[in-house]
Write a protein that binds this DNA or RNA. Structure first.
Lengths: 153, 153
DNA sequence: ACATAATCCTACCTATCCTATAGAGATAGG
DNA sequence: CCTATCTCTATAGGATAGGTAGGATTATGT
């Protein structure tokens, strides 16, 4: 299960991708528009900045901007920043904190082998989907829906 | 990240798949051989029994057996029993506890749409991999390794 | 230089879940 | 009836997620 942190991050990034016209957007605007607790969002944005996805401008007239075009920000990157990778078992994590004590021999642990397949499947989706894709999916779905609404009237 | 519960479950099931010759195996044997806290394992086995993966025999000479052949037990089933499904967002969970408050309109929520793709990818692996596969993977890896060892001597 | 608007940083709190344990109860075999 | 088992309920400690507070720092405009 992805955490609220990650969900909030994706919502905030989605907003930035749709509303950014070059100048920075305020934390408070993001928090209000996307319904995210202000202070909590602050911490999330800092993480995203340190992860290279956002850049900020301090002081009056400051705020946050995307550091890259939406098409160059993968969902995998965002998840990885907020969740510290998305491994299903410790021993498959990117930032390896050591082998999990359960599988005596990592190379032969059945669980590890299976979860490695799962991780590959997850990563292939996460790495191939970008922020731009996410926004587009959402827009398309909304348009589809309003079409259907029109027909039904 | 899968919980220790699930890891222990898979280890115990793996042991049962490999050592079962029809008669029940003791909790204490499973706990000892697979290095799992006895009482904790007890709870896990009960869950697996209620989930239809194991059956038990009470009283003297009792113990646990697989309720199905290993090739008919998917890893997905086990994960689903122990973790209550493996959705990445609440609103995609099997046992829907309601829509997540974040995505106003579930049908148009970009996060939901992306995570739905991820879930499909996960499920396709988890549903197509069985306990028998897991045990086999592990065995094959072990054999490969011992071959390499032989060469190197 | 100064007031103001913004992000940045450090620390903290609380509830929930994960892991684990204890002990009495129920059931079957001999 | 005795013993070996699983079964059930309750509980406890620790970690993590989610959220909050307040002040420090930095930039802008006048």
């Amino acid at each position: 299960m992805i955490s609220k942190k990650t969900k909030y991050a994706l919502k905030a990034l989605g907003y930035l991708a749709e509303h950014s016209v070059g100048d920075p957007i305020l934390i408070s605007e993001l928090a209000k528009e996307e319904n995210i607790p202000r202070k909590f969002l602050e911490a999330i944005l800092v993480a995203l900045r340190k992860g290279g996805v956002l850049k900020s401008k301090i002081g009056k007239g400051g705020g946050y901007m995307l550091a890259l075009p939406p098409a160059n920000i993968t969902i995998g990157k965002v998840v990885s920043i907020l969740e510290g990778g998305f491994a299903l078992v410790e021993c498959l994590n990117d930032n390896v904190k050591g082998v999990c004590e359960e599988c005596g021999d990592p190379a032969c642990c059945g669980i590890r082998l299976v979860m490695s397949d799962v991780k590959k499947a997850i990563d292939s989706v996460l790495e191939s989907t970008t922020l731009a894709d996410m926004v587009e999916k959402s827009d398309t779905a909304r348009q589809q829906k309003s079409k259907i609404m029109d027909f039904s009237i």
